[in-house]
Design a protein around this nucleic acid. Sequence first.
RNA 1: GGGCGACUAGCUCAGUGGAAGAGCGCUUCCUUCACACGGAAGAGGUCACAGGUUCGAACCCCGUGUCGCCCA
Length: 876
Amino acid sequence: MEKTYDPKPIEDAWYQKWLSSGLFHADADSAKPSFSIVIPPPNVTGSLHMGHAFNNTFQDIMCRFKRMQGYNVLWLPGTDHAGIATQNVVERQLAKEGTSRHEMGREAFVERVWKWKQQYGETISSQQKKLGNSCDWDRERFTLDDGLSRAVRTVFVRLYKKGLIYKGKYIINWCSRCHTALSDIEVEHENENGRFYHVRYPFVGEEGSVVIATTRPETIYGDVAIAVHPRDEKNRHLVGKQVRVPLGGRVIPIIEDNMVDPEFGTGCVKITPAHDPNDFLVGQRHGLPQIQVIDGEGIMNANAPELENMPVAEARKKAAQLLGQSGSLVREEEIEHSVGHCYRCRTVVEPYLSEQWFVRTKPLAEAGIDAVRRGEIRFVPEQWEKTYYQWMENIRDWCISRQLWWGHRIPAWTCGECGHITVSEMDPTCCEKCGGTNIHQDEDVLDTWFSSALWPFSTLGWPDTTKELSAFYPTSLMVTGFDIIFFWVARMIMMGLEFMGREPFRDVYIHALIRDEVGQKMSKSKGNVIDPLDMIDRYGADALRLTLASLTVQGRDILLSPAKIETYRLFMNKLWNASRFALANLDDTERSWKEHIASLRMHDCWILKRTSEVAIETEKLLGGYFIGESARSLYDFVWGEVCDWYLELAKPALRGEEGGARRQASMAVVEYVFRHVLLSLHPFIPFVTEELWRNFGFTTSLIEENVWSIDPVDTPEQNDVKESMTVFQEIVRVLRNLRAEARIAPQQKVHRVFLQTSQQEIASLVTANRDLVELLVKAEEVSLSSAKPTGCLASSFAGGQAFLYVGDLLDIPNEISRLRTELESVEKDIATSTSKLNNEKFVSRAPREVVDQERTRLSESEAKRRRIRENIESLE
RNA sequence: GGGCGACUAGCUCAGUGGAAGAGCGCUUCCUUCACACGGAAGAGGUCACAGGUUCGAACCCCGUGUCGCCCA
């Protein structure tokens, strides 16, 4: 074994071995209980970013843990066709080649995207393999593959027949760059500086005018009414009057509608049904016309003659100018207002009137709410239920049609003869109503999230009845970020309940976001991206995984930096070297510590007990998805207890200095410790643990099923040693501290150490372990002493006193002042304890053990004070 | 406007009622036969602020402030 751990050759080799072993493959016929996760499918255009790495690490930890426990684990991988994103990527490519999708035509374009997919679609899965994902790659799926497309069609047709999908002309969010409709949640609102234009609309046939305020004067051409609130005292008298639109000059009525906020501005608002969602509703209620003035390109049309052919931004300025010239512009003010942007390309989204397909979500959402209420689905952490309910209770219909070419084309055919729409799973040859053959399929494709919503069952073979569905649905766990609760989680729940009659997953773990070290979202434009592959290359996948796991805290974002990953890289090296040391002291014989009970010393019993406790704790924590707590406790245990204390204490015995029986016993303990440590750590850091496991010669492989077996340590001998060990550690610390005070170089041995105690247990502890105190404090001789020795530095521990002999080197004034400092701190403790115990309420109301503990503490402190005072006196 | 979260050592963060913890950084010392990617020791905190509940509060409750996010 190398002295320094090098992850690269080990990680690559083990991943290949795992793949060829076939142990990542889940057997649908297995009799074992199943544990299943479907991966959140990354965009096929994507490459692995830190968010994926975190999300996948979490799932892999759970999958490996469950597999070790003997579950039939399915972790189903796959990718999403990502309509807009993928189409954008290929379109950019075409632009570079000097062509466009419109020039190519639909069929050629779609073919081109498929070609692109074949070429680059493997990128992300190969990166997931680098991370160590134990996915069932035989079952990898793609949202546009044949099976999933069939599921999409089936769902569409059934929802349509049930009246839950409809087509209609409504105001939707339109991205004029992507050239498609977007659903409400695909719009990101941001506060931006804008201008508020106060515009005068003169009455027709009488003097006077009303003033309304708008941020969008270019839409004035589309105004069809002015509205006031029906209970608005100051404006109610206006209702029924008519005004002239200051641009275009049409005459429009003043109406009343509850939508108007009478407190806002003048209490009068313009109604532009074709370009504002609220105005659209008002227009419907009042039977008003819809006048469209902006087209799908974001360009003004002929309904705004003076602005025709201008893009919106330019038209806005021009409109303001025209209003100014005609004296209609009362004033302008700077305001901050919320502006919607396309979540894919950041273009400002226009409310746009067009014919689209929608899912009627209310009934689906109600079932989804109930499923969570009834506890069939559990959010972890629980708080996210609130977010979910809030959205589901106020859900709006889902616009599912997209004016793209890459995606599932809507299975609806309009008849050229009778206008009837035929919706069908199989491509129809004629209109189902009139039999006419002049039918034409809808040009639009479905929202990518429509197919993602089916992912937990479409990937398992639905709509067929498959073994996979009965074995793995409902899945056990969904792991995802809070940013897609609405996009994905809620919709999977609705679709799963509707089509499978069961929830798609039992638990949904919502994790935080990964940010950079100053808390900013990572983004290419900010240049603060930490590339997981780069990190794997530099520090190894294990180090990255353990970092992500350790930094996980429920409900808090993770601030990541390479320096943090480096810290965990050091842990790999520590584990590697501790193992290297252990291996150098073991042989091929298997041993059980139980056969060597008579030869076990305190520290052996202590580490056996601790190892057992930590392994059991790991099991419990992982069962509750507490991967952060679990990772941190293992890290601390391995470094702080196994390495810092146990291995140091075991060295003499392993070298044979304590005799043959002790050597055998220590070997057995070391074996036990490493077996359990490697087992517990494997879900987090599979590569290095697997390599070490093999080096130790423990069974075959850590990914074998049922390998998780904890051999609990629960005998009385082992249970009683924790306190003794604590005393022992304190004695060692106190003496090391004295060495440092005396400026004794670390490698230099001190001659004599005296320990004084009035407690029998401590005396026998010291007697039994004096060699180990000598070892750890580098002393030639440690002895119990009842008399106060001279020429010594002194310090107290709980239950006694430690003396370090320095002879003539004793700097008396310095020692006195050091003891005085120690005395001060003890006095403080005494004061605290005394005041507590003098408080009658404390004594009567606090639990007995707390009061007892306080009494013990006080008497211990008083004993300490007495000793320190004696020491000071003896020096003065 | 509504909601959620955060505020603890110089930095990043653990810590859900019983005497404040880790990693990094800092100071001092050390190449001892697992590891200098290491070891030993140390300094460093009014737990944002103000009230309250409690024998006892970083922790529970109520405000205030600052920052971040989501929804409208």
